[in-house]
Design a protein around this nucleic acid. Sequence first.
DNA 1: CCTACCGATCGGTAGG
DNA 2: CCTACCGATCGGTAGG
Lengths: 194, 194
Amino acid sequence: MTKIAKPPKRQIILEEAAKLFKDKGYGGTSMRDIAGQVGMEAASMYNHIKSKDEILDSICFRISDVYIAHLREVEELPLSFGEKVRVLIRLHIQLMVEDGPAVSVANHDWKYLPNARLTEFTTARRQYEKGFAALIAEGIAAGEFQAVNPTVALFTILSAVRWVELWFQPGRSLSAQELEDHIITMLLKGLEQR
Amino acid sequence: MTKIAKPPKRQIILEEAAKLFKDKGYGGTSMRDIAGQVGMEAASMYNHIKSKDEILDSICFRISDVYIAHLREVEELPLSFGEKVRVLIRLHIQLMVEDGPAVSVANHDWKYLPNARLTEFTTARRQYEKGFAALIAEGIAAGEFQAVNPTVALFTILSAVRWVELWFQPGRSLSAQELEDHIITMLLKGLEQR
DNA sequence: CCTACCGATCGGTAGG
DNA sequence: CCTACCGATCGGTAGG
């Protein structure tokens, strides 16, 4: 008999929880809601997860790890600053499209993490923001970018990319690829005629 | 004895509720939490409000009414499309700075409105988005703006302005005025050197 | 505006 | 993985 990988129940619980947290919020989602989606009793889930907090923790840190890995990779690429920013924007949108519910939870529900972990999460995010802002500042210094406020530019980019979550749905008129192109044009070239 | 206007308790309840909803989410905020901030028992609040739902309703529709009024005013002003978009961005940021918690609730917790009112709210928001997108489309037709996708431009603008909520705090290095200027530059002129 | 209280539901545990 | 159940807390009402 060949060993066949069992579908990991923990994974299923995390995925269903992410969808529910996105739709109803962390506080608005009960363990019984999640259990209902997974197809077991609430009590049974505790064989796979430690607590409701731990579900949130797993989702948030998995996503923040991906963000930081992306940043480190892009920093090492032999590209202009304009190209680096473009790649980061594309990676953001792709992660949102592929892993929407988890990204949404990491963006909105991280604040319900228990205190110790909340500090760690905030630190990780701040580290990401610093690295991204540094790319922008270097691009300005190199004459590639206009002399905007790097922090304002950073948050404008991050927020533009974030709204994709509320807005993008497969089968809508725009493909993910087209959406990336349009957002990049808007952010890098601006709205007004040159 | 001259009649002195009593501080309207209902107002106080709505304000404290908005702050708590912003921080802990609608589902994560209990009537007892709100009562504690207001300084009365939970049961006593029902002399001033009908239900927890009704608190959310009041906050959300007050804000959406302001947004739509702003749009209607700006549409009538004798300005270029570039100037109209600039005015709308400034009004957004100003409302966020002056009425932060309520704007935050209208942006995030509207989805917990009971079904009938949720439809009304979504309709109002869609109406606002349509009007704003039309200004952008007309600006493109008039040759003022680049040929971006109007919907993408709209959401890039709305989301950039929305992040101010998470980010702006009085006494930070930037004033509200400077923040407006920087965001407008970034959105209208773009990041990249011309 | 308060005390007292309702039925429902919460996250989680015991024990199998 | 389930049944049975815990104490705590929820939104809201009765009655004053």
